[in-house]
Every structure is written in structure tokens, then in C-alpha cells.
């Protein structure tokens, strides 16, 4: 069911929002609009297509031998220690390092 019941979001409210968005969007180009126009949005990874471009097919073999092994040993080498879960050793949750505006 796509038909809206009458709500706070009347046609006039929505039209006003569209007009406001357009007047804001005119100031910036589409590509950097996400960063400039919507100040509450956190944006990551725009303009970094050289890195993390994903895998490619290849036609060569590999000289790294790593096809065996299911020996489960936990190695504390990742960044997961920075990701806090409730009840973990650090107790209280510190504020975010990341500057996320609210």
C-alpha cells in the first residue's frame, strides 16, 4: 500500500522541503554535495577509488603457499581491541574518536 494517510507531511510541507533542498543543492555540484550540503551526514570514502578497488581476475599462479591450515589460534593482531562491547574489560565507554556532529 503506497498511498499515504494524511499526516504532518502534507504536500505543502514536502514541497517546502524540496524547494529548500534545491536552493541548497544549487550551491554545490552533485559530487561534493554530500559533504557540503547535508551537514549532519558523515561521509567516508569519496574520491579514493585507487585504493580498495576490489579484486581482479588474473592469469598467474601464486608463489605464496597458503592453501592448508585450520589450526585455530587466536592472534591479537587486528584493530578489534578498539571496538568496545559492553562488559568488556575497559568498563566505561569513552567518547568517539571520530568527530561526528549531531
Amino acid at each position: 500500500m503506497t498511498k499515504a494517510t494524511k499526516t504532518a507531511f502534507s504536500g505543502a510541507v514536502l514541497a517546502g522541503a524540496v524547494a529548500a533542498a534545491i536552493s541548497g543543492a544549487q550551491l554545490v555540484t552533485a559530487t561534493d554535495a554530500a559533504a557540503a550540503n547535508v551537514k549532519c551526514y558523515g561521509v567516508a570514502m569519496a574520491g579514493q577509488n585507487d585504493c580498495a578497488a576490489g579484486p581482479g581476475t588474473t592469469c598467474q599462479g601464486t608463489s605464496t603457499v597458503d592453501y592448508q591450515g585450520n589450526a585455530w589460534k587466536y592472534v591479537e593482531e587486528g584493530s578489534c581491541a578498539s571496538m568496545e562491547l559492553p562488559g568488556e574489560r575497559m568498563g566505561s565507554l569513552e567518547p568517539l574518536e571520530r568527530d561526528m556532529p549531531s
Partner: peptide, 24 residues
Amino acid sequence: GRIDVTRPQDVLVTRPGMDVTVTG
């Protein structure tokens, strides 16, 4: 830095031009 992982977040991934944009 330390990240509070319990804060729920919705993430939108788009590509308005050539660059992939990931938005919180």
C-alpha cells in the same frame, strides 16, 4: 581511537559520479 560499537548506525552507499560515497 576507541569506538563505542553499541551505537546503532545506518549506512548509505551511493555513487553520484565516479567516486563511491559512504554516508553515515
